[in-house]
């Protein structure tokens, strides 16, 4: 394989995959612990109507308005879910089901009614993502990687994702205590004078931001996998929240690199020159990692539990 091909095609894609997985995976820890894992699911599904609405309002397929549309749709969906849950006194799963399917239907109607479908906003891309289209042009060998000219040509998605990932890491570090206590015991958090509602709203907004930044590259369904699988895997392995966060980053990184590698180079193993969907493959690898953890984790895996049951 040529160095230039790797640098301009594979490296940016791998970096984008790892960064999306890391940013979503970090936040996923709190979603999983708060029993809000499926909020990520709902937010990912309303990306489609958001993008279409963004296109309709802005009239272009430029990235920024579409991303703003997706972000707005995510926040509207989260707000509606909360309103319907409280006003209708519904279980949150039912409220989510009502909201995200309805917004998805609106998205499809809008898509069909406009010429958005002709203008390259096809729904499949929103759902599957298009990791393979992230290109770093103008880099031909490893010596150039850190040159100013090459860095200025870094793919925009990569830069955005790096910023979002850094912001999320900083936010989680800065508000670690507050996130921890308001997740474990909102009652105590309130009696300590913490703004519990603001914290959970802010968490949802950051989740929406991470989802929007990530699914442009990797697709909305992969985003769900990244919110849930690394956190769930780490959850099987440790009882310490800080360690769980680190582990989820490790798992997300492995899934990102492994998934892309399998999708891009796997088929060549049986002599097929086509590559497979990287987004899908990353989700599959994340699922496999989680399965291994569920089965073989030291204390909480089913093997250990079965052995303890036999012993005790």
């Amino acid at each position: 394989m040529m160095a230039s091909e790797f640098l301009s095609i594979d490296l940016p894609a791998i970096l984008v995959a790892v960064l999306s997985a890391t940013s979503c995976g970090l936040l996923g820890n709190f979603l999983v612990l708060r029993r809000q894992a499926l909020i990520g699911d709902a937010i990912a599904h309303v990306a489609l109507p958001g993008i279409v609405a963004g296109f309709l309002i802005a009239g272009t397929i430029a990235t920024i308005p579409l991303m703003i549309g997706a972000m707005a749709a995510a926040i509207i969906a989260a707000g509606l879910i909360e309103i319907i849950r409280q006003a209708g006194r519904l279980e949150s799963g039912a409220a989510m089901g009502v909201v995200f399917t309805t917004m998805f239907a609106i998205g499809i109607v809008l898509l069909e009614q406009t010429d958005a479908s002709n203008a390259h906003i096809d729904a499949e891309h929103a759902l599957y993502g298009n990791l393979e289209s992230t290109l770093w042009l103008g880099v031909t060998n490893w010596n150039d990687v850190l040159s100013r000219e090459a860095l200025s040509k870094l793919p925009r998605q990569l830069v955005t994702l790096a910023g979002v990932t850094a912001a999320i890491a900083i936010l989680i570090t800065a508000f670690f205590k507050e996130l921890k206590v308001s997740t474990f015991d909102p009652g105590l958090a309130a009696s300590l004078g913490l703004p519990v509602k603001t914290i959970s709203t802010a968490l949802i907004v950051v989740v929406a931001l991470a989802a929007v930044a990530a699914f442009e590259a990797v697709g909305s369904i992969l985003v769900i996998a990244m919110f849930i699988c690394p956190a769930a895997t780490a959850r099987m392995l440790t009882d310490n929240l800080a360690r769980q966060l680190w582990l989820s980053v490790v798992v997300a990184t492995i899934a990102g690199i492994g998934g892309y590698g399998l999708a891009a180079f796997g088929p060549q193993l049986w002599g097929d020159s086509h590559s497979l969907s990287a987004g899908g493959m990353i989700a599959v690898v994340a699922g496999l990692l989680q399965t291994v953890a569920m089965v073989a984790a030291p204390r909480y895996g089913i093997f250990c539990r079965a052995r303890r049951r036999r012993a005790g």
Partner: peptide, 19 residues
């Protein structure tokens, strides 16, 4: 009222009182 499966030790939980 809380999830006892939460990844925290007894000491962690007491420290929350100091937050």
């Amino acid at each position: 009222s809380v999830d006892w499966d939460f990844p925290a030790s007894a000491e962690d939980v007491v420290a929350m009182g100091l937050y």
